[in-house]
Amino acid sequence: MVYYYRCYNVIDNNRGTYVKKINYKHLKRSLWAYHMNTGSCNACDIEILATLMPRYDAERFGIKLVGSPRHADVLLVTGTVTEKIKDKILQVYQQVPKPKLVMIIGSCGATKGVFHESYAMAGPLDTLLPVDVYVPGCPPRPEAIIYGVAKAWEKLEEL
């Protein structure tokens, strides 16, 4: 089950005003994802890869994993944000060109998950960045990740 919270523009400063409405439409047909690990236990990362594998075949929706944040449309963040990686994820977010989405994969990023008592955590991510879609689960199944992308599309239509 995927929960979808309507909490974009948390500390958003440059979206909604700068980007015109038409721009988001084109993300529906081709969504390039950049995957960033901010201290996850690697299970979520493997589930993302499983989503792209032949069984679920995310490429048929135009979803592609790219190697550089400059090419990305959506930032897939796995894991709770550690103190060490906090400024890196902020930098990467700024490197993504403008019509951009942020998706959290896994409970860690949304709530700190099992690491909630740790002293080394700067997260959860939505206190740092405007997050569009949360996909909870530890780790979430590939179906849930695809459903999260579908939710992101629904959201794009509203914008």
Binding site: I22, N23, H26, L27, R29, S30, W32, P54, D57, E59, R60, F61, G62, D73, P97, K98, P99
Partner: peptide
Amino acid sequence: RIGPPLLQPVYDIIKLMYKQ
């Protein structure tokens, strides 16, 4: 796999043209 639609590269180009 099923694979992307035949016009997928065109969609990619259109999207990139609208990006920053």
